[in-house]
Structure formats: C-alpha cells, structure tokens
Design a protein around this nucleic acid. Structure first.
Lengths: 228, 228
DNA sequence: TTTCACAATATTGTCGACAATATTAGCATT
DNA sequence: AATGCTAATATTGTCGACAATATTGTGAAA
C-alpha cells in the first residue's frame, strides 16, 4: 500500500499528477501559458481544481505564476539545468553522507543486490544502463539518508524538474551511458560506513553527469539570462 | 522597489504573509489545526484565499495537509531542527562555494564592509551579535551564489522554518553568541576566490551552530520519531 | 506613421453555496 | 461496561458566478 501522502485521493491531486506528467513529457510545451479556463475544459474539472493543481506545480518549480497575469511552464535553458545539477550535487552528496551512517544493514544488502542486477545487465553485453535502474539506485540512497527534509526536496521537486529536462532534450531512454563503476564505489563507501567518502564520490558522480550534459548541450540551446 | 515576486499584490498574498508571520512567531501554535472557516473569519477573507494561503504554507513546509482532513502547523522537534540544519549546511556550503566564483568585486567589497560594522559592534563591548546582522551576512552569500534554485530553496522555505524554531524555542533575540571570526574567515576565502575552502568553512560554521542548538535542546524537547 | 488615451475584451482573483468526506454522538448488542 | 453500527454534525473539496486586473484593439492627435 502506498503511503498516505502519495495516494491521489482528491480531484485536485489527480489533476496535478496529470498536469505534471504532461509538462514533464512535453505534451504541454515549456514556456507555454497555462490558461485556467482552457485547462479546466481539457481536463474536465472546474477552475478551482486547476488553480490548486497549478499552485502545486509552482511549488515544484515546474511553472511560474505572476499575479493577475497567469502561469507559464518554466523555460528550459542550459543554465537552468546546470543550476539544478549543482543543487542536486549538494543535496545528494549530503544524502550519501547520511546514508552511510543511517542505512540499516538490510538496506545496504538490498542496495548491493540491486547493483548485482545492474552488473548482469552490463555483462550481458547491453552497453547501456536503464534509466529506471539508475533512478532506483539514487532513490534508495536518498531514502537511506532518513532525512525527511532532504527526501522531500529531492523527490518532490528536483527529480521531476530533471526528468523534464531529460525527456525534452532527448537525453532520456536507454542510450544513457553507464556509470556502473561509480555506483559500485559509492555503495562500497556506504558499506564501509565511510560518510566522508560517500559524499565525495556521489558529488563527483553527479558533477560528471552534469559536465556530460553541458558538453552535449552547449550550442544547441540558448543559455540566456532571465529577462526582468 | 521590491522585485515583482516579493510584493504582495493579491489578497491571498497578504493573507499568506500574515499567516506565515503568525505561525513563525508562535501566535498560531505549532501542531495546532488550521480550520479554514475559523481562519476565514479571523482574517476577514473568504475560504478560497485561506485555502490558497495554506497551500503556500505547505510549500514552505510550515504546515502539513491531509486530504479531506485538514492542515496542521508542523510539530517542532529536536530531530526536525537537526534535519533542517543538515540541509542548510549542504545548501549554504554550496552557496559559499559558488559565491567564491560568482560574486562580483563590488559585492565582495560590500560584504567586507558589512563585516567591518559587525567588528565595530563586537569591539564596542557589546558581546552579542545582532541576529539581523547574521542573517544579512548569510543572505548576501546566498544571493552571491547567483543560483536561483539554491536561492529560492533557502530563502522561501528553509529560512522561515529556522526562524520559527528559533523564535519558539527562545533562541532568538540579541543574546546570540557570535561567530565573528568564522564569518571573517569565510569572507577571506571568498575574496581569495577559494571556492573549496569557502564551502568547507561555511559548512563548519553552520554545523557548529547546529551542535550548539543540539546541546541547548537535548532533554528540553522530545525528539520522537514521526508516527505513521 | 507613430504615439497616446480610452474602450472593449479576456483572464485571473474572490466569493458564497453545494457536494463529498471525515468526525462525533447516540443507540443497540454482547 | 465495552464494542460496533448508524445517524447527525462538522469540515474539507468542488463548483459556477461575479469582481478586479491585465491585455488587446480602436481611434484621435501630433
């Protein structure tokens, strides 16, 4: 059973999830305006629930609202993605540090098992890393930090933002090149309860990925400064 | 003139700010239920604007909502404050790192000037550090990071949360013991454009403060694990 | 032709009423 | 008396209408 907070019970919950999905996957284009009336018609709900959904999207930093003007999906820029990765490095680095102390033996064993399945995939000649598997790896460490503030920041806003970028920039899918060895090192550090090293390795892992993205994107996307 | 995002233009804006003030200052007790009807009557607005305000308070992690049940002000616990400080250390450490690279010469000069006025205060025999001054110092470095994601996370949620704890635990006011030397070191690192050191020092500065709080609070406040 | 003012339109903000859900109170049964 | 069911009450969720604000379009003056 899902935890109480994750289950969509109310109409606004469902609409929020639908809207988030459509934004993340680009069905609603980045930068486009969100008309309350229009959305209410499309999603077959009243403006009130659309407004509540939009408010929550704003909390995730997926849309920006201006009073008496309306909401727009955030613009995708290289700079924006780089900023997010910088924050991610700081937070997930700390998560790895805390996980090294706070994960139980069982949780670490599970993590190693996950790593084993990933190794099988790599060994079997498939030279890619499933995105889902990568996410699973990171999720476990984030949850392993046992810090609810950290968990909610990463899971409720940053990860959806990143997914939006990945999907819309075509960086998603199975061709993601793997960093299996980096994952292995991180798990080893956690198993050794070496918090300091776990943080350093996790941060480096994320910053490598950031540099990769930067290389692929430089030139292909404007990195304009935000206009007033 | 205030930036567009800071000006409260709509009724929901104003109510949000009022409610936040009252929660942070303990006028509305931590753990207490927020009845929409009651608040609507007290603040002389409709339930719709109360609901919007509560939604925003939830984004700040100041209240928690449960579908069809209602919203409660978050509970204050030692563990909670420790968690927040851990996140703060990670984010502000990163902010200091980025500030060392991204602050302009003028901004650094201003920061040094601010440090000078603090030195005057300390030298003049007042053995305390004004809380406002401390905040001002941290704000400048956060803004100096030039990372909007980082800025919004720290300014829009973490800092209000911390202030709530400080006010309600009586840790506020002018008796805050100063860490002038630590501030000085941090500024020096930024001036030297030593990003690595700036981060280490800022993180240590915050973790010292965290340990201080922990000592003062241990025993005086329950640190129960969150129930179901 | 350009620019400014003003009217017309469209969009967001706010409200009160009703629907759906949770909580409480009372009663019957064991 | 304790437990479980049902009805009554209270609270949150949703809706459509109206108010307030922004945007657009039109026309007059320079």
């Amino acid at each position: 059973m899902l935890p109480d907070s994750e289950r969509a019970v109310t109409s606004a919950d469902k609409t929020f999830l639908l809207l988030r999905k459509d934004i993340v996957e680009g069905v609603i284009a980045s930068g486009s305006k969100l008309s309350e009336a229009e959305l209410a018609a499309n999603y077959l709900v009243s403006r009130a629930v659309i407004r509540e959904a939009i408010n929550r999207l704003e909390s995730c930093h997926l849309v920006e609202r201006k009073a008496n003007v309306g909401a727009r999906v955030v613009n995708i820029t290289t700079d924006g993605l780089m900023e997010i990765y910088q924050v991610r490095a700081a937070l997930e680095g700390m998560a790895a540090r805390l996980a090294a102390t706070n994960m139980t033996g069982d949780e670490i064993a599970d993590l190693k098992k996950l790593l084993g399945t990933h190794f099988q995939i790599v060994k079997n000649g498939e030279n890619y890393y499933q995105e889902a598997g990568d996410l699973d790896f990171h999720y476990r460490i984030i949850l392993g930090s046992k810090n609810n503030q950290l968990i909610s920041m990463l899971m409720e806003s940053i990860y959806h933002l990143i997914r939006m970028y990945r999907v819309q920039l075509g960086m998603s899918g199975p061709r993601v090149t793997m960093a299996f060895d980096e994952h292995k090192q991180i798990v080893q550090a956690i198993e050794n309860r070496d918090a300091e090293l776990a943080e350093i390795l996790m941060r480096r892992h994320i910053m490598y990925s950031r540099d990769n993205l930067h290389k692929k994107l430089s030139g292909s996307l404007n990195s304009e400064a935000k206009a007033g």
